[in-house]
C-alpha cells in the first residue's frame, strides 16, 4: 500500500535525483542570468542618464520594449524565432549544443536587466546632483565621476530593490519549462507523469521555490538592517 504522502519518493531514488537535478538547473539559470544582467542593467541605466539625447531614447525604447512583453513571448521568440535569423553554420553549431538553456538565459538576462536598470537609474537619481557636479569640477570625466563618486553611493540605495528583482528572476526561471529546459518545474512535471505522484512532486517544487524565496527576502531584510540608507 502506498502512503498518502510518500516522503521516501522525494528523499531517495530516481525521482529524487530528477528533482534535485532540476533544482540545480534552476539555480544555475538564476546565477548565470543574474551575473549577465547586472552589468547590462548598469550599462543601460548609464545610457539612459547620459547627456546624449539619442542614447537616452534608445535606452528608454529598449527598457519599454522588453518590459511590456511577457517573458513567455520572449522565450518563444529566442527559442523558435531567433535561430532562424542566424546563418546556417552558426545555427547548426547552436542546435548541437544546449539551445534551450541558451535561449532561456538570453530571455531571462534581457528581461531582468530591463527591470534592474530602472532600479539602478532611480538609485543614481537619488544621489544629489551636486555630487556629480563637484566631481566634474574637480576634473573627473563623466565615466570616472560616475564610477568613483556616484555609483558607489547609489549602489547602497539600489541593493534592496535589486534583491527583490533577483527574487523575481528566481521565480521567472520556472517559465523556461515552456521551451523544454529541464529545470525544477519541468522535472516536477516529469516525475508527475512518470509516477502519478503529483502531490509529492509539486510539493517538492513548491517547497524549493518558497524556501529560496524566503532566503532571498531574508537577505534583503538583513541588508536593510545592516546598511540602513543614510540621510543625504
Amino acid at each position: 500500500m502506498t502512503p498518502l504522502f510518500d516522503l521516501d519518493l522525494l528523499l531517495t531514488g530516481t525521482y529524487h535525483d530528477w528533482l534535485v537535478a532540476g533544482l540545480i538547473t534552476s539555480l544555475s539559470l538564476t546565477g548565470i542570468s543574474l551575473a549577465l544582467a547586472l552589468p547590462l542593467a548598469i550599462l543601460i541605466a548609464l545610457i539612459r542618464l547620459s547627456p546624449v539625447k539619442v542614447l537616452q531614447w534608445s535606452g528608454f525604447a529598449f527598457v519599454e520594449a522588453i518590459r511590456n512583453v511577457p517573458l513567455l513571448a520572449h522565450m518563444l521568440f529566442w527559442y523558435f524565432g531567433a535561430p532562424e535569423l542566424l546563418p546556417t553554420a552558426l545555427r547548426e553549431w547552436l542546435y548541437a549544443r544546449n539551445i534551450e538553456a541558451t535561449s532561456a538565459i538570453i530571455a531571462l538576462t534581457l528581461y531582468t536587466a530591463a527591470y534592474m536598470s530602472e532600479d539602478v537609474r532611480s538609485g543614481i537619481r537619488s544621489i544629489p546632483g551636486q555630487q556629480f557636479e563637484a566631481a566634474r569640477a574637480l576634473g573627473f570625466s563623466f565615466v570616472a565621476s560616475m564610477r568613483l563618486v556616484v555609483l558607489p553611493q547609489a549602489l547602497r540605495v539600489t541593493i534592496p530593490p535589486l534583491i527583490s528583482q533577483t527574487l523575481n528572476l528566481w521565480k521567472d526561471t520556472s517559465i523556461a519549462t515552456v521551451i523544454g529546459v529541464a529545470e525544477l518545474m519541468y522535472q516536477a512535471a516529469k516525475v508527475e507523469s512518470a509516477s502519478f505522484r503529483s502531490f509529492e512532486a509539486f510539493a517538492f517544487a513548491s517547497a524549493c521555490y518558497l524556501g529560496m524565496s524566503l532566503l532571498i527576502t531574508g537577505a534583503a531584510g538583513w541588508y536593510q538592517g545592516r546598511f540602513p540608507v543614510r540621510a543625504a
Partner: peptide, 27 residues
C-alpha cells in the same frame, strides 16, 4: 507558427508587438 512553419521570427515578433502595443499604451 506550426501551420506556417517557415516564419517563426516574424510570427513571434508580431506576438511581441501585439503585447507591446497593449501594455505600453496602458502603462
Amino acid at each position: 507558427n506550426t501551420q506556417v512553419l517557415t516564419k517563426p521570427a516574424e510570427v513571434y515578433l508580431l506576438l511581441g508587438l501585439t503585447y507591446f502595443i497593449l501594455c505600453f499604451g496602458l502603462s
